[in-house]
């Protein structure tokens, strides 16, 4: 299986303080990966880093063939909902890569209408986006994701403040993308949801705690460790002297290996050793 995204000792953060610290590993093409961890664990930061929204502090991201085709749904969209724009226009923004600034919508209109129907918003095409409820608006954004037709889809807490029925519909869409062979990474808080629908999980607490099949990652011990680690924030932290050579083995194992020993990534950084001492 080829890799959609590979991370090499990736550190992301703000003001030199790492929010994601020395993360190694690969997201295989076609993965349905849940990103879990407490608030402040670096889930959003990692997604922003993957989409290129924030600069990399250290290490690098290899985006492979997915380079051009990453779709990203941010946690709190910066969308100005007061802007007089119709649902159809919002969804049609997803066609940007194909149409650019000048080509006419043409047959794209049918694709947009199909996507709007797929998220259950038929009949809302001409409605201004400002009149939609929270759930309807999230559905419209999912329609835009459908229209974007990207190979890699990053979702940052897509179900916050959304009712159960809408969540069910949206998860069905995500599973559909998975079935089409797209790579989906979603930051989530609901463990039951993750266990039920996401085969792979990355547990983050600024440091990677565990990465692998969901059942092996979401263990009580891992979750407890994640909770403890994420609470540490040192304003006067020293410069990280983390030696890049020591844990190079994080890079030489392939995806199959990381599926079989899923705690590998935690070891790779040595954080478990530190925690044990």
């Amino acid at each position: 299986m080829s890799e959609a995204i590979r991370l090499h000792c990736l550190t992301l953060g703000y003001d030199r303080h790492p929010a994601v610290h020395h993360l190694d590993g690969a997201i295989a093409e076609g993965d349905l990966l849940a990103l879990v961890g407490p608030n402040g664990a670096g889930k959003s930061t990692l997604l922003k880093g993957l989409v290129g929204e924030i600069p990399v502090l250290d290490g690098r991201i290899e985006r492979g063939p997915a380079k051009a085709g990453i779709a990203y749904l941010p946690q709190a969209a910066e969308i100005d909902r007061g802007f007089p724009l119709s649902v159809l226009d919002l969804v049609a923004m997803g066609l940007w890569r194909r149409l650019g600034a000048w080509r006419s919508l043409g047959r794209g209109r049918a694709a947009c209408e199909a996507a709007i129907a797929a998220v259950g918003l038929s009949g809302f095409e001409a409605r201004p986006i400002g009149t939609l409820s929270g759930g309807q608006f999230q559905r419209a954004l999912f329609a835009r994701l459908i229209v974007q037709d990207a190979r890699v889809i990053l979702l940052d807490e897509p179900f916050t403040g959304i009712d159960a029925r809408t969540v069910g519909d949206l998860i069905a869409l995500i599973r559909g993308w998975h079935a089409q062979g797209r790579t989906v990474v979603a930051a989530l808080h609901d463990f039951a949801q993750v266990r039920a629908h996401f085969p792979m999980t990355l547990l983050l607490a600024r440091e990677p705690i565990a990465w692998g099949p969901t059942a092996a990652v979401l263990t009580p011990e891992n979750l407890e460790r994640a909770r403890q680690l994420s609470e540490a924030w040192d304003e006067t932290a020293a410069i990280c002297r983390h030696d890049h050579d020591v844990h190079d083995h994080g890079q030489d194992h392939d995806h199959a290996a990381h599926a079989s020993h899923d705690h590998h990534h935690g070891h790779a950084h040595g954080s478990q050793r530190e925690a044990a001492e």
Partner: peptide, 23 residues
């Protein structure tokens, strides 16, 4: 006329425009 579409997108959802293009 030439910039209309990206201008509207930059107004409505600048983050989205950043993720799909550099315009």
């Amino acid at each position: 006329a030439a910039l209309y579409r990206p201008l509207v997108m930059e107004c409505v959802d600048p983050l989205y425009l950043r993720t799909v293009s550099r315009t």
